[in-house]
């Protein structure tokens, strides 16, 4: 058979698979299929899709596609962020309970209880006497999120950093500053994507003396004030490149 003819037969296979050919044409295509393995294989690759077409509704195909409301993504992010911070508090509570012992433990449990009733933790109220503080860095580029939980200890301050959205492998050096502008290093960590973005660090500066927390992340520095009046601070951070 000539290539031209074969190509014509092939073009009929769509209508054939859909069962839309008139009887005489259908019989002719069937006869060709008997002797042409290539067309039989091509037909097999179309039959599955042709059968699925029966499920579709033409009016739905032509209706404009539904798209989600513009703010749905932000709502989901907010819900996940709230859930994440609740889980972090749970984790801290479990960790501190496990490591608890003696008088220090009693102090820690007190701190943890205070955290559990922080505003934003769902139960509201309390917290004005809480020694633990949560700081959010607000002046950060889009997509970057930095926050810290600060907890007083006999040695100084324990700092839990939560970082996301910066380049993987970036070295982050954390520091505290007192009201007189003196800097106290709190250690460093390397931010890894896909790993745990939490780092637990410590500084010798007493939390009651700390006025500001900062992170040198690569070439950038982000800072946020540490408030004394309330337990939960939405700090107005300042970023400088």
């Amino acid at each position: 058979m000539r290539t031209e003819d074969h190509r014509d037969w092939r073009l009929s296979l769509g209508a054939y698979a859909l069962g839309d050919l008139p009887a005489d044409e259908r019989a002719a295509v069937s006869a060709h299929l008997e002797g042409c393995a290539e067309c039989r294989a091509e037909l097999r690759s179309l039959e599955g899709v042709a059968a699925l077409m029966a499920l579709a509704d033409p009016d739905r195909i032509e209706a404009p596609a539904a798209s989600p409301p513009a703010d749905l993504g932000a709502r989901i992010e907010a819900q996940i962020a709230a859930e994440a911070s609740r889980e972090r508090r749970e984790k801290r509570r479990r960790r501190l309970r496990l490591g608890a012992g003696g008088a220090v433990a009693a102090a820690l449990v007190a701190a943890v209880l205070a955290i559990a009733i922080l505003p934003g933790g769902g139960s509201g109220g309390g917290g004005e006497s809480s020694p633990a503080q949560q700081v959010h860095f607000t002046s950060v580029p889009n997509g970057v999120s930095i926050s810290a939980t600060l907890e007083p200890h006999a040695f100084g301050t324990e700092i839990q950093m939560y970082v996301s959205g910066i380049r993987s492998g970036t070295l982050c050096r954390v520091f505290l500053r007192d009201a007189r502008g003196r800097t106290f290093p709190a250690g460093s960590f390397r931010y890894r994507w896909g790993g745990d973005s939490e780092a637990v660090l410590s500084s010798a500066l007493d939390l009651s003396q700390a006025a500001e927390i900062g992170v040198h992340a690569g070439a950038q520095t982000f800072t946020a004030p540490i408030g004394q009046a309330t337990a939960l601070v939405g700090g107005a951070g300042t970023g400088s490149a």
């Binding site: 769509g14 209508a15 859909l18 699925l52």
Partner: peptide
């Protein structure tokens, strides 16, 4: 029309 049905079905398969 016949060839558009054929190529349309193939395109549909790729999209699926």
């Amino acid at each position: 029309i016949k060839s558009r049905v054929y190529y349309g079905l193939r395109a549909l398969r790729v999209a699926l």
